[in-house]
């Protein structure tokens, strides 16, 4: 026998279930209980950088959009700084970098308004291309899924990105690229998430 290490074990995950909205997005689900809903304003009014919208679907293995998903975004500001004591510096007043959205009950569409993040420091002095960290939970998802939204028009930075580069398959890297377009004078990035199939989105064990 040896000495015990005495680490605790992490609380095991369970699915968020079909009624996740009640707890985490009651207002968005049409349920008026809290005075202040959390996560609806990622960037705030003072953030520098390009104002963008990111939207998409989450698609299951049958090819159908999932209509009970909750997504959370975590991103740096345009200078590549996260709003956190270890985030690399100061951010604009009101910039939180965190957002929470649900998919539409009828269409499965989700979307959030934010600013395009800047490049962030990676490990060992390398630079990471602009990206938004995304966490996806839903009924039938037993442990939240982590992925990253990269931007297709950042080809040069993406090519150098250390995380993109550990993905062996070019075809799979493409699942992390949000497609840029303009709608009513607004910049919109499309990011559909495929849970299964040949074009299954890359998910990370972080």
């Amino acid at each position: 026998m040896v000495q015990p290490l005495n680490y605790l074990k992490e609380t095991p995950s369970q699915t968020a279930g079909p009624y996740v909205h009640i707890g985490l997005a009651p207002g968005a689900a049409g349920f008026d209980i809290y005075e202040r809903e959390l996560g609806w304003d990622i960037a705030g009014p003072n953030a520098e950088g390009e104002r963008i919208r990111v939207e998409g679907l989450v698609i299951d293995g049958t090819g159908s959009p999932i209509k009970d998903v909750l997504l959370e975004a975590w991103q740096a500001n345009a200078k590549g700084i996260y709003a956190h004591p270890e985030g690399g510096g100061e951010v604009e007043e009101g910039f939180r970098g965190w957002g929470r959205v649900i998919t539409d009950f009828d269409t499965g569409e989700w979307g959030f308004d934010t600013i395009k993040p800047g490049k962030t420091p990676g490990r060992n002095g390398r630079i990471q291309a602009p990206h938004i960290n995304l966490w996806v939970v839903a009924r039938g998802i037993n442990l939240g899924l982590n992925t990253r939204i990269y931007f297709e028009d950042e080809a040069e930075a993406n090519a150098e990105d250390p995380v993109m580069n550990i993905i062996e398959w070019e075809r799979r890297r493409a699942t992390l690229l949000a497609k840029r377009s303009e709608k009513d004078g607004k910049v919109v990035y499309r990011f559909d998430i495929q849970l299964q199939g040949q074009d299954e989105t890359v998910f990370f064990d972080v």
Partner: peptide
Amino acid sequence: TSVARSPQYSLISLQNSVGEITGPVF
């Protein structure tokens, strides 16, 4: 419900960088 909602490829293992060790502050 997990059957059609479970990714089937392996997760890509990622060492932490600043975006992983930080998170929203409430």
